[in-house]
């Protein structure tokens, strides 16, 4: 049973990208202002779920052929690797490093090793949430 969802599908095509852009913005805002990997990951998930609602799961799977369990593992690896880098420098685990750089286009930007950790968090959140949603949603 498929109702006429042209409106939803058309809107989704635009809205998804707005949500994704916002997710990226929130993700990078995360260090000094509210935001970060967790909320960025949740926003990304909502974008994918919106796609799944507007179209259907097989279509979305064709567009985004991602194994979300592997995505979770990669995210965890990112996080562990960032945290473990402190072992190599023989400082307590999770010690972070940061500095200020002049980047073209952005001006003076602070780059932080916690960003790498946050990428890990982002991937884990997307992976875990999508795994859960797929597990429930897959069989009708």
């Amino acid at each position: 049973m498929r109702t006429n969802d042209v409106m939803l599908q058309t809107a989704t095509k635009v809205v998804t990208f707005i949500i994704l852009m916002f997710a990226v913005h929130i993700f990078f805002a995360g260090h000094y202002t509210p935001g970060g990997g967790f909320i960025g990951g949740l926003l990304t998930t909502t974008a994918i779920v919106l796609l799944m609602l507007a179209f259907d799961i097989p279509t979305v799977k064709k567009v985004l052929p991602i194994n979300y369990v592997v995505l979770t593992a990669v995210g965890l690896l990112f996080a562990i690797a960032t945290a473990s880098a402190s072992i190599i420098f023989d400082v307590p685990f999770f010690t972070h490093a940061y500095d200020y750089y002049d980047l073209p286009l952005f001006g003076e930007t602070s780059l932080h090793s916690a960003l790498l950790f946050d990428i890990g968090v982002y991937l884990v959140v997307v992976g875990v949430t999508m795994t859960i949603i797929q597990t429930i949603g897959e069989d009708e």
Partner: peptide, 24 residues
């Protein structure tokens, strides 16, 4: 090695994550 006491936690965590990549 100030982090020695964390190794019994990190090692299984790292391996568990790697094992998630190829369950079959």
């Amino acid at each position: 090695m100030s982090n020695l006491l964390l190794f019994p936690i990190i090692i299984p965590l790292l391996f568990a994550t790697v094992l998630m990549l190829f369950p079959k």
